[in-house]
Design a binder for these strands. Structure first.
Lengths: 226, 226
DNA sequence: TTCAAGGTTATAGCGTACAGAACCCACCTC
DNA sequence: GAGGTGGGTTCTGTACGCTATAACCTTGAA
């Protein structure tokens, strides 16, 4: 556990990171009730900065918070999975296209470095593996040089992460994982060579066959059955 | 001035609405320093709920807030105007297409009602006129039945509003305003008749020739000159 | 006996006031 | 003129009191 005073400029930021990580890693399960007092003592701060963090997470849709009601971690739903997919299907290709247009030498270096040793996620991936995967996509976002697009996509990524984890509970075949690796490679090639159309097309394909798409499909099945 | 206790469930929400409105209406100018203590007394609350509101506005990009530094209203910039346009050019057509696919009878009624008496914005528009215009577009967003897309677009709209205001300082010709009215009409027609492709196309056109686009162009000129 | 409705109490979130910490600026010294 | 130090200002965090909600219990009627 890092020392809050050393790394973060405010305890509010620290609380935000801690709680967010707890939600994304599943230590706080979807639907779980959040007691502000006990959460605050667990993190080691008082309730005011925690509240600010929770409000921020509410803004990002990770927690539900009504006045004078106990807050809870937002539950997963087939609708949200579908919603996320529809937007990312539109914005991720945009980011890839813009990246192919505007990438600098530094961007290319970062994308190459993030791609280095990147392997398709196994079932039950480590936090580091998820981070590595994210870093590659974040590098593409960054190369778009559109700040609002970057932060929007980062937020969508956070929301999607919980669905990704869910999809990874079912082991994928080697063929599917090879396919993902191939897509990462051609994504990189297209962006570096300035192939705007190609980058967008590959990215759209990448999203359509992504873990999030699998999760959306599975959740829809569950909903339709019941 | 509304009584906070009566309308809002928390003072934090009240403060958020008040400050946001002050920024969007220009009572707090871009770049202006925000003193928490005086802002709080002006609104009639203490600093804690105000701080929560400011943090929320920071998340939406309307204020800049660093640790232990004085906060300020985010300045306008050519980059942000361009960034906004690029994303809206992608997401607004998506919303229109989804709306054409999923609109319910209630959606159609609301879109029709919002379109009723809608007139292209004059120079120096009233708050009500801006609201009416927004209501029409919000009705389209809503008909997409994608909650994340709706909230994302609402946020982008807020950010874009300040640029819209800027563009309206230059009076538009009657031809341009007639064109906008025509676009609103065919947007409505396409969505109601379920013309998915058409709705997306008209919306893209609508964005490309929007006030935000004019503002982006003007800001770019200014930057290039200096 | 069971269910429903109203009131009361307990619990947990919200708001205020104040104390603490960090930053900025002015002033002084070298 | 440049660098450092001190005071003042403003933001951040804590503690506590307030208020709203919800759960439980009692009471009455079916």
């Amino acid at each position: 556990m890092p020392d809050p005073a050393r790394i973060y400029t405010t305890k509010s930021d620290y609380a935000y990171d801690r709680v967010r990580k707890m939600i994304l890693e599943g230590h706080l399960a979807p639907g779980q009730v959040l007691n502000q007092a006990s959460l605050a003592t667990e993190i080691g701060i008082s309730t005011t900065p925690l509240r600010e963090a929770l409000r921020r997470l509410k803004g990002e849709g990770l927690v539900e918070l009504d006045a004078h009601r106990d807050g809870r971690v937002s539950p997963l739903s087939a609708e949200e999975a579908r919603d996320l997919l529809e937007i990312r299907r539109s914005l991720d290709p945009l980011a890839a296209a813009l990246a192919a247009e505007r990438r600098t030498k530094a961007d290319i270096a970062e994308m190459r470095s993030a791609h280095e040793g990147l392997e398709p996620l196994p079932g039950d991936p480590s936090y580091d593996q998820l981070l590595h995967h994210r870093r590659f996509h974040a590098a593409i976002y960054f190369a778009s040089h559109n700040d609002i697009l970057i932060s929007t996509l980062e937020e969508l990524w956070n929301k999607a992460d919980r669905y990704r984890r869910m999809a990874l509970q079912v082991e994928r075949g080697q063929a599917a994982r090879d396919q993902k690796a191939h897509e990462h490679q051609s994504l990189l090639d297209c962006i570096i060579s300035g192939n705007v159309e190609g980058a967008a097309t590959v990215m759209r394909e990448h999203i359509d066959t992504s873990l999030g798409a699998h999760a959306a499909w599975r959740l829809k099945q569950q909903t339709d059955e019941s």
